[in-house]
Design a protein around this nucleic acid. Sequence first.
DNA 1: CGGTATCCCCCGCGATACTG
DNA 2: CAGTATCGCGGGGGATACCG
Lengths: 229, 229
Amino acid sequence: MSSYGQFCPVALGAEIFAERWTPLILREMLHGEISFSDLHRGVPRISKNLLVQRLQPLHASGIIEQVAAGEHRRHYRLTVAGLALGPVIDALGTWGYNWASKDLDDEHLDPDFLMWSLRRLLRMDALPDERVVVAFRFRGHADRLYWLVLQRSGVDLCLHDPGYGVSLEVNGTVAALAGVCLGHAEIRRAIHDGEVELLGAPRHRKGFPTWLGVTHFAALPKVAAAVSR
Amino acid sequence: MSSYGQFCPVALGAEIFAERWTPLILREMLHGEISFSDLHRGVPRISKNLLVQRLQPLHASGIIEQVAAGEHRRHYRLTVAGLALGPVIDALGTWGYNWASKDLDDEHLDPDFLMWSLRRLLRMDALPDERVVVAFRFRGHADRLYWLVLQRSGVDLCLHDPGYGVSLEVNGTVAALAGVCLGHAEIRRAIHDGEVELLGAPRHRKGFPTWLGVTHFAALPKVAAAVSR
DNA sequence: CGGTATCCCCCGCGATACTG
DNA sequence: CAGTATCGCGGGGGATACCG
């Protein structure tokens, strides 16, 4: 029995929404049409099997649908009912931002997800005209390297050297850059404090801080009583 | 691993909120201080074991706390951080009301929960001065009887005849009365259509429709596109 | 009332391989 | 890329009994 057995609107909503992984899947889909692979990149710790299992009831409930995306490609997209879940995601994220995002433990600081977030938060209009390749290396994760290929026409995240040469190297802690994404820290201050180190030509070191955006939750009025736990 | 591994506020919120049963538990607690037993009555299909298991992380996260309630009694209560989850419950219920409350299947129409809802939705100020005992019997659930003891000083729900004598007898379908609670149907119309039958003195049959309230979600602006599924 | 303690079963989920 | 198929395990959770 997967039903709560209640006709209460909260219970009816929870049957669909309050399922493990589902809020994260919906969060990704709120950014627009998306392919299965990109969806998986946004929620990397879910298995493909389980992702499919989560998408099925969302489809059956009329919350998502599939649309053709070129030859032999399909994308997922929210329906009107799915878009109506936006305020729920927003309310949940607002709570999470105010009450749970201050002291993050290592468990929440996956560099894969950080890179995917940095990619999403890039301020496209602030990027330089030339192509810039930025390499990232994180303390405590020496085994993983990332390359961000920045162009105004589009941005790529690579796990292997794309071969164009590296314009800027970023070394730092995941915590510091996550704090920047969340708007809890200033990138320039993190650099000054040595939590993030930039290696490259001065124009790229100067430019980098201007390319990064922050989550839209950072624009919320702060809750004074919110404590770190 | 119970963490999503993401520092995103939505993920951080979901780790706590999007757990099975948790939204229903929080919904009950938003009504104010509550004892373990009453909490269980509002979520009758959860086991006591599991209810305790769900309360523990809420306590550890600083969302709920326990307060003394007389000698040897304790109640649960939301903290400030817990009250801040109110907008999330509200957003979820709003979605559920608009997109999932139109066509309910039997699985969602548990008479136990209906009675608990009726009890909560009674308009205390509209009750008569005298004590009135209302007995309920539902089609398809002939084995279960309920008595609602109405007094302006307080209301009791009993599973055994309280012995004061019965002033009014209500026979009907769970679906019809659930529709009334949700504001989808008018109780007078349900009576006229034979979905609900009242047996008793005329003044009680006249009074009964005035005693019932509807969920506050019914006051929302209707979403035109919302379909029944 | 307000929970613990214990037993045990099932299925949710991860790992791995495969397909069009 | 976009999933499906299969196997196997672990623990989530139901049932029941107990306790202060």
